[in-house]
């Protein structure tokens, strides 16, 4: 008797859950998934041998060779720590589009600042980025960077998806937003596990400026410290 009652309860629950209105978004997401699979195939076929594919491959190579160069001197034991950092800074300067990152990070306050403020900010921003990244990558301990996929984003950007693969432990997904400009590839954003360095920087700066009464100089003073 009790088992029958239990079963009938489960049955009723199942019927109720089936008749529950499924939210529109959920249906959309199912459709989106299907659609997505097809569009993926389409892209694969359509882009064969066209310029877009070349650009993607170019961006992949760019990120791959940048990583190889960095790993090359970071694991070179004949170099001193200072030499490694020097080389790393040079690499950053050559491969990151500092001007674009700086401008994005300042957001709407770029337009409200004077030419002089912009120049001052730009120089300080560059130093800050180089310091932060030198510190981050200075802790190098034999990880490898594997380029796994890439896709176009907007008119001139490519997102190159890579994974930092440590000797032991968990992989970390790092997406590089690479912009093709004047015949050269440059990194304009680094997205670590879904967190964009540029967006984070921008939120930080925006808050500092807002709390300082909307004055860019408040940020500049902070960057000087």
């Amino acid at each position: 008797m009790r088992t029958i009652r239990l079963f009938s309860k489960i049955l009723i629950l199942a019927v109720i859950s089936l008749t529950l209105p499924i939210p529109a978004n959920a249906i959309e997401s199912i459709n989106g998934l299907k659609h997505n699979q097809f569009s993926f195939i389409k892209i694969e076929i359509n882009n064969d041998n066209n310029a877009e594919n070349k650009k993607i491959a170019g961006a992949e190579n760019f990120v791959g060779s940048m990583a190889q160069r960095a790993i090359g001197f970071l694991s070179d034991e004949t170099l001193t720590r200072e030499q490694q950092i020097k080389k790393f800074q040079k690499l950053l300067n050559n491969t990151f589009d500092m001007k674009t990152i700086a401008r994005f990070s300042l957001g709407r306050y770029w337009r409200t600042s004077t030419k002089q403020e912009q120049q001052e900010y730009l120089a300080l921003f560059k130093d800050m980025i180089i310091n932060i990244y030198s510190e981050r990558f200075g802790e190098y301990s034999g990880q490898n960077l594997e380029v796994r996929s890439a896709r176009t984003e907007g008119k001139s950007d490519t997102i190159v998806t890579t994974y930092i693969v440590p000797k032991k432990g968990v992989e970390i997904q790092v997406d590089w937003r690479v912009r093709y400009k004047d015949g050269r590839y440059k990194v304009i954003d680094v997205i670590v596990e879904g967190i964009s360095m540029a967006v984070t920087q921008r939120s930080d700066f925006a808050s500092v400026i807002q709390r300082g009464g909307g004055d860019v100089n408040v940020l500049i003073v902070h960057l000087q410290q």
Binding site: S29, G32, L33, N36, S39, F40, I43, K99, T100, R103, F104, S149, R151, E153, G154, K155, S156, D157, I159, T161, D175, R177, R179, I188, D189, I191, S196, A198, V199
Partner: peptide
């Protein structure tokens, strides 16, 4: 649940 192709990234204007 989205593939890498659909996942959105922030808009990044061209300057």
């Amino acid at each position: 649940r989205l593939s890498a192709i659909e996942a959105s990234v922030p808009a990044f204007p061209e300057y």
